[in-house]
């Protein structure tokens, strides 16, 4: 088996000491190792934010792209070079605020990639503002009198948009995290893992302890093929369930695109000649 260290770059993570994202990094390295991928077979894509520094710390192809835009960049990569294994990384602000529009459409297309979100309920890189997963009344520098908005349910958004692998994990449980990542990487289709990964510097409310206290593994008899069941578990505001909510086999975007290509054995030049005259 490959060593997790072979996927680690020489760049030392810039995250604060104690940041939840270290556990995500180590679980990712171990999942890569179990997948047995070569370095050049992996593309790590991110947007902007603390967690989006991720590709710098990996020895894979890395794309540190634009705030909120990791998923369309990843879609471009996957459709242009389907043989590469694409893993997108980001945070709750990047993915569910500025990138929310891209998130639902990437799920809808069932693009064959893994999307790992480090969800800390706050903007960390910009030093502590309210995010779309921040709770109501949560006080930050941008909500000094308390947050006036309700939080988004990322897993509900993923499920209702057509994601075919949806899971939630905890930074405080790296062993399970690795299993969830491995499942996502093995899955053919849009796989999203929302990781409750605390920001120890700017969020004193959603901590390792409170995330652990508020969460609970999905019941053992949870049926991962039942979309309605998965949605109701994801909607549950009394407890944040962890584990695999939903898994489905469905054609991926690449299958549909591939099916449209000419398969009648004509040479490219011949096809082009026809196209120039307005025929396909």
């Amino acid at each position: 088996m490959n060593s997790p260290n072979m996927y680690k770059s020489a760049v030392k993570p810039t995250w604060c000491a104690g940041c939840g994202d270290y556990a995500v990094l180590s679980a990712t390295l171990r999942a890569f190792a179990e997948m047995g991928w070569a370095n050049e077979e992996i593309v790590a894509v991110s947007g902007i934010g603390c967690s989006s520094r991720f590709p710098f710390f990996l020895k894979t192809y890395g794309f540190h792209s634009i705030h909120g835009r990791a998923l369309p960049v990843a879609t471009g990569i996957k459709t242009a070079r389907p043989e590469l294994n694409v893993v997108a990384f980001g945070g709750d602000g990047d993915g569910f605020a500025i990138g929310a529009g891209h998130f639902v459409h990437t799920a809808r297309r069932n693009v064959d990639l893994t999307y790992i979100v480090m969800d800390n309920h706050i903007y960390g890189l910009t030093k502590g503002q309210t995010s779309p997963t921040s709770g109501l009344h949560f006080k930050t520098k941008s909500s000094p009198y308390g947050n006036v908005e309700f939080a988004i349910h990322p897993l509900v958004a993923a499920l209702s948009s057509g994601a075919t692998y949806v899971a939630r994990g905890l930074s405080s449980d790296p062993k399970t995290l690795k299993e969830l990542f491995l499942g996502a990487m093995q899955h053919r289709g849009f796989a999203m893992v929302d990781v409750l990964s605390p920001c120890v510097t700017y969020n004193k409310v959603d901590t390792f302890k409170t995330f652990r206290d508020r969460s609970k593994p999905l019941p053992e008899d949870h049926d991962v093929t039942d979309l309605i069941g998965a949605l109701s578990m994801a909607m549950d505001d009394t407890v944040m369930h962890t584990g695999v909510f939903y898994r489905a086999e469905k054609p991926v975007l690449g299958d549909h695109l591939e099916a449209l290509k000419s398969k009648d054995g004509r040479e490219w030049e011949e096809i082009i000649e026809g196209i120039l005259r307005g025929m396909t």
Binding site: F63, R69, A74, G76, R81, H102, L257, W268, T280
Partner: peptide, 27 residues
Amino acid sequence: FQPAGSTFLQAESEIGAINMVYGAASV
């Protein structure tokens, strides 16, 4: 595009489209 072996995708927005271009150009 598709019959000629190239890819066409209608993006969710102009922003989505240019970022897909960014990704595809990168490979």
